[in-house]
Structure formats: C-alpha cells, structure tokens
Design a binder for these strands. Structure first.
Length: 644
DNA sequence: CTAGGGTTAG
C-alpha cells in the first residue's frame, strides 16, 4: 500500500492505481481501497477504476462511480463513456445505457468514432441491434473498430447472415474482424463455416486458433481441437486452458489432467480458467488427491475463491466423497450464486444427505436466490434419497407454479425414479406417459430399473415391449428384463430373453474396474487371472470370504442369471472385477491409504455389501466410483446410504 | 471490437 505522503501527488497515485487495477489476480479490491484514500480523485483516477470494474465479472460499481463522478463535478471524457457503456453492455442495462446516451449527446460526445463504437456495442448487447445499426449508418468517420463492433453486435444477437453481409462489405478486414466472424459461426455451432474462414484468412493470431479449438470442442470434435492445438505455432495460456476445457467438456477428464500437468511442466502457469476446468476434471474422475493438489496450487498462487472457483471446489469435494470439505468451502464462500447453491444441494443429495440438502434449498429460497432447472434436479434427487415421494411431487409441481420452470426430461427421470423406488410403479408409468416427448427411452429404462427392484414382471414386460421398439440396439435393456425374471426364479423366461438378445447380436457391456497404484493403472475383469499378482489376490479374497462368512455374510447372487448351482453362482459374484481391484489395492497399499477403485458399470448389491464389510473388518477406507455415484466405504457403511 | 469458466436424473 502507498505511503500517505505520496498521496498528495495525483500523478503518482494514478500510476499506482493503474498498476493495481491492471494486476491479474484479486487486486481490484486493493485498487478500490487506494482510490478511496485519494482526497480528490481526478477524471483519470475515476476512469482507471471504472475501466477495471467494467472488465471485471461484476461491472455494477462502474455505474455507481460514474454517478459519483457527476456528483463531484468531475467531467467525464470519451474514455469514461466508453467504459461506462461497456459496463451497461455487460449488464444488459438498457435503461442506464439510454440515459447515458442522452447525456452524451447533451455534452457533445455522441458522434465521434469512440462513442459510436461503445453505443453500438451497448445497444447490441441489450438486444436493440437496430438502434446500433442506425448509429452505425449515421456515423461519418467509421474506423475498423466501428465495423467490428457492428459485426460482433450482429453475431452476439445470432444474426449471422447480417454479420456476414457486413463482413463481406467491409473495406478493410483485419484479423479481429475475421476472428469475430469465426467466433460468430462457432457460437451458433456452424463449425464448417468457421473453419472455412479460418483457412481463408490472410493472417492468424493466437485468438483465431483458440476460437477454433474451443469451437471444435463445442461441436464434440475434441480430436480436431487437439490437432489444432498441436499445430498452432505459439500457444498462450488461453490455448492451454481452452484445450483442457475441451477435454473436460468432451468427457475426457484423464486427458485434461495430463494436459494440466504438461502445462506446468513446460512452464506455463495455469490461470483461473485452467484451474476451474481441471477441478471439474477431478470431479468427473473422483480424483481427490489431484483435486487437493489443484486446490493447494490455487491457494499458493493467491487466487481468489470467487463463486466460480468456489463452485468448482464444492463440486470436486462433494463428488470425491468429502462432503465436509465441500460444506466448509460453501460456508466460507462470500458470494454464493445459484451455481454454488445448486452444486452444494446436489452434492449433499448424492452423498446421501437428502434432508440436509432440502434444508439448504429452503435457505436458498429465503435468501432470495432463484433456483433453476438444475437446482430442481438436485432437490428431487434429495427427496428420493430421503424417501420423501410426496415432497418430491410437491416440488415437482412447484417448479412451474412457483418459478415458471417447465419440467424437463431429467426432472421426469428423477420423479419416475422416486416413484418407482417407492413401489408406486403405476404412478411412475402414468408420469412417463405424461412426459413431454413421451418416447424418451431413458425414462423407460429408469422404469425398468424400478420393476427390477420390486420384481414386477408384468410391468417389466410391458416396459420392455416399448423399449425394444425405441431402443432396439441396447443390450442392457434385455439384461435388465432377464434379471427381473431371474429374481423371480423364472429361469426359462430369463433364458428366452437372453437368447433373443443373442440372436440380435447384442452384447452386454463388460464390466471392468481399475485402480491406480503409484501412477500405474491396473485393470480387472470378472474372474480375471491375467494380473501378475493373481495368486496373492485370490488368496486374500479367500481369506476375506472366510472372515466375512464368520461375521454372518450371505452372498447375494441375484444378478447371476442362470439356474446353475448356487455354489457356482457364488463363484461368479465372488470374483467381480471390483472385488479383484479392491483386493489388489489391499495388498499394494499401506494400511492407512484409501483404496480408490473406478468401475465402468454400476456396482452390484453383493460387491457393495462386501466392500462395507471389508471397510469394517479390515479397517480400510474404500472409495468406489461407479457409473452413477461415488461410494465412500468407512467403518461398515457407505456414503450412498445404500442408495444408488 | 475477437479467444479460455463452475451446477444436470437413471
């Protein structure tokens, strides 16, 4: 902080202020403090701070500073207007923007190129593009920036044809114009048109490459993103974070983490955006240790925990089974927005704290934060976990009535699951039939899952009839129905369904589990004997079964289909891939180390029971991530509260 | 004036 005797020299103070405001991380606060100590800030000082706020995530103070400026008789200049207009644009504050426009005309600032550019952007961002165009046509001295403002204005409004017409008319197109046009196509998802322009443009800068990298990722072509990333001549920090994000959004969290490590190795310092994305990658993987490392990195580098990083942290800790850490971050978070609340509510719900999640939702409503559709996914999921079907129904109806949010397919999914689990199969069927676009196969699959839980053969058959029509290529559907028959001992029917499946050439996805030991991933399939430590693994499993059975454990062989001898069925279940991986973890890791296993399918009932018992009898922590949920086994119980 | 960000059922 500046010594007070220097405060008398406006020039030094302004330089210090400018330096402070321009620093990358969290210095806006210091700039503000410095500004507040200046006895009589001049126009330059105001402009510096107004600009800093206008470019920050929370531009509101720019508007307030502008009012304060007028009140203190400090004359705004065109620089001031540019950034106050930018703040209005960012906030879509059309009222303030129009007022400002009127004020500008009165004080003679309405028609120079600088002001025109700001006004065009402001009107475009506020959805009044036609007003922007009028000003654009009226302005006599149009520079390239002016054309570009108009161009990106059209692009922001999704009016790509008009943008393109302007682009083709432009007397001189600079790299920025090309980039703006390319970005416009990227936003509407026309990656082909974007690529065509990219190939045609005379000079490409990092932004051109980065735009396209992100563009391919948005369209699901992560491979193309990577190709460009490798080809581009000079990668900057945005290129790296864009590529990391591309991997995360494309569902390749492992690759995202690898790239993050490589980024650090080549000496590129990860910034805010990279941290946010890589935290999301850790969430997807359930990679707690890496997540903790990333968190520590952010702290070491004094990154401010704003609502975005805060949300990413909450989600990461929650998805890694550390619900207490997630709550701690949430409680400390100064600015909670709907994302942070939603992540926390959903996190509590999947960790089995349904009641606490609902409590938090009430607090959120009391705090005046408006929930969105995603929030309700968490809320309905929480009701399911808490066994509160009636409550779920109430929330489901309140979505539209109270908040005007139309329930989407995923909300129907939650409800079908909640009703189905509670045994209200008929109600669940009615809901599926009442859902928008009622042929959505996923809802029927959920329904079939409920039929399986309750051994409801009749509805199961009815549901499958629908499913084979809409989802004829999914082997999982047949497996579910044959499981239903099997639980009822209807082996002929079970076999018939299996035969049907086979005759159509459909296969069930093979389950496999993996465990990482010293950076090396070991993979196991059911009954796998290919691992070098196979003998030790099977010996340990035999020992485990001995102790478990003494403790009263009875194998649950429900998922094994065929009417083979009970003893043989036990053997199939006994060597499920997750059990092999857990046993391998037990012989490879220290007794205190948590055993982290990832499974590609849902964990079966028996493996779940066995994992709980191992955690108690062997005093080991087991963290098993399956296709849907995170299971955190400790002292004989699981974080999922036996709901998954 | 152009590039990178967080929450979504089974």
């Amino acid at each position: 902080m500046l010594r007070i005797d220097l405060m008398d020299d406006p020039f030094s103070v302004n330089k210090a202020l400018e330096f402070c405001a321009a620093s990358p991380h969290g210095s806006l606060h210091h700039a503000r403090k410095l500004f507040d100590q200046i006895p009589q800030p001049n126009t330059f000082a105001y402009n510096t701070l107004i600009r800093a706020y206008a470019n920050s995530p929370f531009p509101v103070p720019s508007l307030r500073l502008f009012s304060q400026m007028l009140y203190c008789n400090r004359a705004p200049n065109s620089y001031t207007y540019t950034f106050v207009l930018k703040a209005c644009a960012r906030l879509s504050a059309i009222g303030e923007g129009e007022q400002l426009h009127g004020f500008m005309i009165k004080s003679g600032f309405g028609s120079d190129a600088f002001s025109t550019n700001g006004l065009v952007s402001m009107y475009a961002s506020c959805g009044r593009i036609e007003l922007g165009r009028k000003l654009f046509d009226l302005s006599v001295e149009k520079d390239e920036v002016c054309w570009n403002s108009m161009l990106s204005g059209y692009a922001d409004c999704g009016l790509l044809d008009q943008a393109r017409r302007l682009f083709d008319e432009m007397p001189e197109k600079g790299t920025v114009s090309w980039n703006a046009m390319i970005n416009g196509y990227v936003v509407i998802g026309d990656i082909g048109a974007a690529r065509e322009l990219f190939d045609r443009m005379p000079e490409r800068n990092a932004e051109s490459w980065n735009t396209l990298i992100a563009g391919y990722a948005k369209c699901g072509f992560v491979g193309m993103s990577r190709k460009l990333f490798d080809e581009m001549p000079e990668k900057n920090v945005v290129s790296w974070s864009a590529m990391i994000t591309a991997y995360v959004q494309g569902g390749f969290p492992k690759e995202a983490l690898d790239l993050y490590e490589e980024m650090k190795r080549v000496g590129m310092a990860p910034n805010w955006a990279a941290i946010v994305s890589v935290l999301s990658a850790c969430s997807q993987l359930g990679a707690l240790e890496q997540g903790v490392d990333v968190h520590a990195y952010a702290e070491r580098n004094k990154m401010k925990v704003d609502s975005v990083i805060g949300t990413a942290l909450i989600d990461m800790y929650a998805k890694c089974g550390c619900i207490d850490r997630a709550l701690e971050i949430f409680d400390k978070l100064a600015s909670k927005d709907v994302f942070s609340w939603t992540a926390m509510i959903g996190g509590l719900a999947v960790n089995g704290h349904g009641a606490k999640a609902l409590e938090l939702f009430s607090k959120m409503e009391e705090g005046g934060v408006r929930p969105n559709g995603v929030t309700f996914v968490g809320v309905l999921c929480a009701c399911s976990h808490a066994g509160q079907v009636q409550l779920a129904m109430q929330y489901f109806h309140s979505m539209r009535r109270k908040y005007g949010i139309e329930p989407q397919i995923e909300h129907y999914g939650c409800m079908v699951d909640a009703l189905g689990r509670a045994g209200l199969i008929q109600e669940a069927v009615s809901l599926v039939q009442a859902s928008p676009g009622k042929a959505d196969p996923e809802l029927w699959v959920t329904l079939l899952g409920a039929c399986w839980i309750h051994g409801n053969v009749n509805t199961g058959e009815y549901v499958l009839e629908h499913l084979v029509k809409v989802k004829p290529d999914d082997g999982g559907v047949y497996v579910l129905l044959s499981n239903i028959y099997a639980t009822r001992g209807q082996w002929d029917d079970a076999r018939r369904v299996r035969m049907q499946m086979k005759s159509k050439g459909l296969k069930k996805v093979r389950g496999h589990s993996s465990i990482e030991i010293n950076g090396l991933v070991h993979e196991f399939y059911v009954g796998d004997k290919s691992h070098p430590k196979t003998v030790e693994i099977y010996q340990l499993l035999a020992d485990i079964y001995c102790r478990l059975k003494l403790a009263g454990y009875v194998p649950n062989t429900n998922p094994v289909l065929f009417d083979i001898a009970e003893e043989d069925k036990e053997n199939v279940v006994a060597y499920h891939s997750e059990k092999l991986a857990i046993a391998f973890g037990m012989i490879s890791l220290d007794a205190q180390a948590a055993i982290r296993v990832v499974k590609n399918l849902r964990v079966c009932q028996d493996c779940h029971t066995v994992a709980k018992l191992i955690s108690k009898l062997y005093n080991r922590e087991i963290i098993l991530r399956d296709r849907n949920v995170f299971h955190y086994f400790r002292d004989g119980s699981c974080s999922c509260k036996d709901y998954w």
